[in-house]
Nucleic acid binder design. Structure first.
Length: 193
DNA sequence: CAAGAGATCATCT
DNA sequence: GATGATCTCTTGA
């Protein structure tokens, strides 16, 4: 079943943890791709220096200030897109970054888009999975309760969850230490240990 | 296998 | 004018 908007309206840390084991579904003219989420990160509110919205309400961060259940997609390092799911209440800027999924459906399509045959290199990173799933900034602000990009609960629980500090946020002062990265323990499809 | 450099541009100062 | 919520390729052990 498709995750309802109420799912995204919970606290960001809860959403990030509960997203593990859920299914990311992308419907595209070229075909449908599906993956099981194995790695997420939470970016929580205006105080969190690692969160883009800590710099204020701008054109880029506007979506994060909006209601829950919408996609925040931005370009990083001039070449890769990253997918986030907006959480919590309107006017409270927070989101969950999807960092890695285990490829399940549309694998040939992912291989073509990623230009590799290595299953483990298709979606094991935020930039990689956006490439594999054809997610770019055109989807920024898109409704996750619509049918282009959404999440499903297929009732398969996650064995065990591990947390670590977030990746690539050394500039965030004390916030870089927060254990807000969530991983499915033992998954071979995560971005890094 | 590990470490380092380079690619590349929207966003904010 | 500086800088990233990254990835790939090259180098060297």
């Amino acid at each position: 079943m498709k995750l309802p908007r109420s799912f995204y309206q919970q606290s960001t840390l809860d959403v990030a943890r509960q997203l593990l084991g859920k299914y990311l579904v992308r419907e595209h003219q070229e075909g449908t791709t599906v993956g099981r989420i194995v790695e997420t990160e939470a970016y929580v509110g205006p105080e969190d220096k690692a969160c883009h919205a800590s710099k204020g309400r701008t054109a880029r961060t506007e979506v994060m200030f909006g209601p829950a259940g919408y996609a925040y997609v931005y370009l990083i390092y001039g070449m890769y897109d990253c997918l986030n799911l907006v959480t919590e209440s309107e006017d409270y800027p927070a989101a969950v970054l999807i960092r890695a999924v285990e490829p399940l459906e549309g694998i040939d399509l992912m291989k073509a888009r990623r230009r590799t045959d290595r299953l483990h290199n298709l979606a094991s990173g935020p930039g990689k999975l956006c490439q594999a799933f054809a997610i770019d900034r055109k989807l920024n602000g898109g409704d996750l309760c619509d049918k282009v990009l959404y999440l499903e609960d297929r009732g398969e629980p996650v064995s065990k969850v591990v947390t670590t500090p977030r990746i690539g946020v050394d500039y965030a002062g004390p916030w870089k230490r927060k254990p807000w990265r969530f991983l499915v323990q033992g998954s071979e499809f995560i971005s890094k240990p």
